[in-house]
Amino acid sequence: MTFSRRLISAIAILGVSGALLAGLARSASAAEHDGGCEGLELCFYFNSGAGGADHDFRYKVPDLGQYTFVAPGQGSGLSVKNNAASVDNRDGYFTARIYFNSGYAGPADDVSPLTWRNLGDTYNDNASFNWCHKKPLMCG
């Protein structure tokens, strides 16, 4: 999906005029937190292998305890914090950095652009996440 088509589909959901929306991220509220894992989002899954219920985020989150898995499936309704087994990064360029603790504290694990991974040793140890540029390293 091109940026433009992605934007248009987001606008269609919102029912807002496309002329108002010049930038991508301004369409964000249309798509995140709906359980659908779409472009520019980071999606946390209850099960390994991007399985079970998920929650999709467009922006960095200092405490995942404020969110539950929203899509139907195993884990639906449970807190995302410390309950995710896998993560899918659907941003085309930015790396997602997942922290063991709230407020971007503790050590962190990275999920490269357009890849998903099981959380392994960080399994059920995910409390917050930020988006980072890798070379040079710069996190939001």
């Binding site: 010049a22 930038g23 939001g140």
Partner: peptide, 14 residues
């Protein structure tokens, strides 16, 4: 801190 990613996406045209 400035969210560099959000700023980047929001500051540029399609």
């Amino acid at each position: 801190t400035t969210d560099v990613r959000q700023e980047f996406y929001e500051s540029h045209t399609e």
